[in-house]
Design a binder for these strands. Sequence first.
DNA 1: CCTACCGATCGGTAGG
DNA 2: CCTACCGATCGGTAGG
Lengths: 200, 200
Amino acid sequence: MVEITRRQAIEDAASSLFRERGYSGTSVRDIARAVDIQGASLYAHVTSKQDVLWSIVERMASTFEAAADVVEAADPGAATFGRGVYLIALVRAHVGVITDDIERASVFVHEWRALQGDRRAEIARRRDAYEARFCSVIADGVRTGAFEAVDPELTTNYILTALNGLVSWYRPGGRLSAPAIADFYADLSLRAVQSAKTTP
Amino acid sequence: MVEITRRQAIEDAASSLFRERGYSGTSVRDIARAVDIQGASLYAHVTSKQDVLWSIVERMASTFEAAADVVEAADPGAATFGRGVYLIALVRAHVGVITDDIERASVFVHEWRALQGDRRAEIARRRDAYEARFCSVIADGVRTGAFEAVDPELTTNYILTALNGLVSWYRPGGRLSAPAIADFYADLSLRAVQSAKTTP
DNA sequence: CCTACCGATCGGTAGG
DNA sequence: CCTACCGATCGGTAGG
């Protein structure tokens, strides 16, 4: 119990530092200082600095995946919803994950490249799979004529990077609430692909 | 002449390394090795690692500003062009700067935070001023009804981060040419803000 | 969770 | 542009 809490405190502190200074720019002593222990004592709780990064990044990857799973579960086989409704739901889910844990989300977006070897490869693979969900919804919409004849891959990159930009400026308690941002971002994303024919 | 060339080679190598590993993750010896000299010899050409980062970031800041200046010069007082045409021109200019020098652009986008003190503050200020150009075009369009009633600041963040995402995946000689990407990104950005009323 | 310590590497300087 | 070198800091281990 105590250990779980301590470990979480370490990951919280590391998330904040990794976000501010990057993984390479943060020393294990920086993290230790943030939780008020000696640098070497950190190794009673974690096996390496890489291990801390991995925990943060892996958890966020799972959270993004789970959020998209929920959207998918609401319309099994993707048969009922219009592609626009589906895209909006995916965008809202993505924004929600970011605003729910802005520091870990920031580390996920910007620091996953600091992972090494198999772990980096795994995250790259899972990112690709996640992006493919957006891509196939967009491709579907283009096929049915609900969306403009956009390039699905390019458009996925455009939209997802726009959403991820949130990690650089969102701050809880700011001018706009998280749900308001999710709504506005969903509107912008849908309009970007929406066919003029289906716009009233 | 030789020195100018050498200095450029160092900045090129540093751009590539800063892009791949980040500023903190790159050592001066890494840079030196890339230009085939000893680590300490680098200091015959640069005064510090910070100095190299500053050169890269400052040049890119100037390049972005100059590109927007050209757009502005084409319509002094912003009186003739429709806001849509103007926004498209700004987006194309921005994308063009990125695709013209993808490595320095990537460093500009991701590593400017590694600058210290006054230099970091200066770049933050110039970034804000640059973003304000996009913001005011969007705000104008909203006022005249040419654009949807979007939040100009939020929309500026959305669009500019989407464009900057290019630094993470654009590679010269890829599936899409730089001008094609600029066109598609301009279309997506315009549609995101375009009022349904003015869409045919 | 601490003190004490490890070899490696860091950015940078001296002096040629 | 080199060799030789500086003090500081790095991630991590030993042993309690």
